[in-house]
């Protein structure tokens, strides 16, 4: 599903988090929102997910206006920065949560829920951790469980807020590859936020460089490297 953003702006009281920005993300792309903290990248992601509402502008999903859709109606899978897993539930229950939360008519049977959760556990290559509590998992495992939980609702798009932020360098590299594989297998339009230029350049099909609430440049990693649109982009993407 392709995502169009038209003149999207967001103010929190007196402060501007996002100046009117426009952006087009092709269907099935893996997009990185890259920028330093305070650049508005997380605000943009949260607006896409329906957790914040823009002050002005529109969001289109496959050409349809999604600006006013509630979080629940959007069906956007969201992976939070510190994962926000439910501490009092097992991994299985965490992943099943979105399916159980459906209206009775649309809710799968217990057997079907079990089948789907196990399939997702296979997808994240952690088939045996269903009965464990999330406190018993490593950081990398938690991240993958959060990913599986977001995928369980059969989302239309996948949004990730600093998905590798809380991990050490080695695990980071491994999971980068993991995200790429999961993205390619699901074919979902995926948007992730990062402040790490190497991560964005290596992983994404399309990189959106942001600063101070504005989009500085949009392009393929090679394009941005070859032709930075501003001094900021050149400095920020210089490894």
């Amino acid at each position: 599903m392709n995502i169009e953003i038209e003149e999207l702006a967001k103010e929190f009281g007196q402060t501007r988090a996002l100046y009117p920005v426009s952006l087009s993300m092709p269907s099935g792309a893996l997009v990185a929102l890259l920028g330093p903290s305070g650049s508005g990248k997380t605000t943009l992601l949260r607006i896409l997910g329906g957790l914040e509402f823009p002050t002005s502008g529109r969001v289109l999903f496959s050409g349809e206006d999604a600006t006013g859709l509630s979080v629940q109606e959007r069906r956007a899978g969201f992976v939070f920065q510190s994962y926000a897993l439910f501490k009092h539930m097992t991994v299985f229950e965490n992943i099943a949560y979105g399916l159980r939360a459906r209206k009775r008519r649309e809710r799968p049977t217990e057997a079907e829920i079990g089948r789907r959760v196990n399939k997702l556990l296979d997808l994240i290559q952690l088939p045996d951790i269903g009965p464990r509590y999330t406190s018993q998992l490593s950081g990398g495992q938690r991240q993958r469980v959060a990913l599986a939980r977001a995928l369980a609702i059969e989302p239309r798009i996948l949004l990730l807020d600093e998905p590798f932020g809380a991990l050490d360098a080695k695990v980071r590299k491994e999971l980068r590859q993991g995200l790429r594989e999961i993205h390619d297998r699901t074919g979902l339009t995926t948007v992730f936020v990062t402040h790490d230029q190497e991560e964005a350049m290596e992983l994404a099909d399309l990189v959106v460089v942001m600063s101070m609430g504005r989009i500085e440049q949009v392009g393929k990693p090679a394009e941005i490297r070859a032709k930075p649109a501003s001094d900021f982009v050149r400095d920020f993407t210089a490894a």
Binding site: Q72, F78, A84, F86, Y97, G98, A101, A150
Partner: peptide
């Protein structure tokens, strides 16, 4: 917020 994005009321 996570529960919201998973469609919970």
């Amino acid at each position: 917020e996570a529960a919201l994005t998973l469609g919970a009321s």
